[in-house]
Amino acid sequence: MPVAEQRPTLAERRKAETRLDIARIAARLFAEHGTAEVTADRIAAEAGIGLRTFYRYARTKEDAVEPMLTTGAQRWIEAISTGPHRLPTLAELEVAAVQAVTVEVGEDFELTRGLLRAMETDPALRAVWHRINMEGERELRCALAELAGPDADPVQLRLLAAAAAGAIRIALEQWAIADETGSAGAAAGAGESTPAALVVRCIRALGAGI
Rank of each mutant, 00 (worst) to 15 (best):
A100G: 09
V105E: 13
G106W: 02
L111Q: 06
R113H: 10
R113M: 11
R117G: 12
E120G: 07
T121C: 11
D122P: 08
D122F: 12
R126D: 11
V128D: 01
W129H: 10
R131I: 03
N133Y: 09
N133R: 13
M134G: 12
E135A: 15
E135C: 07
E139L: 10
E139C: 02
L140W: 02
L140I: 04
L140P: 01
L140R: 01
L144S: 01
A145L: 01
E146W: 08
E146R: 14
L147A: 15
A148S: 10
A148Q: 04
A148H: 07
P150N: 06
A152N: 02
D153H: 04
P154F: 10
L157Q: 02
L157M: 03
R158M: 10
L160E: 00
A161L: 03
A162Y: 02
A162N: 03
A164T: 13
A167V: 03
A167H: 02
I168H: 03
I170P: 00
A171M: 05
L172D: 00
Q174A: 14
Q174T: 15
Q174F: 08
A176Q: 01
I177H: 11
I177V: 15
E180H: 13
T181G: 09
G182K: 05
G185L: 12
G185H: 12
A186K: 05
A187I: 13
A190T: 08
G191T: 04
A196K: 06
A197M: 06
A197I: 04
L198F: 10
L198S: 04
V200W: 12
V200K: 15
V200Q: 14
V200H: 15
R201Y: 09
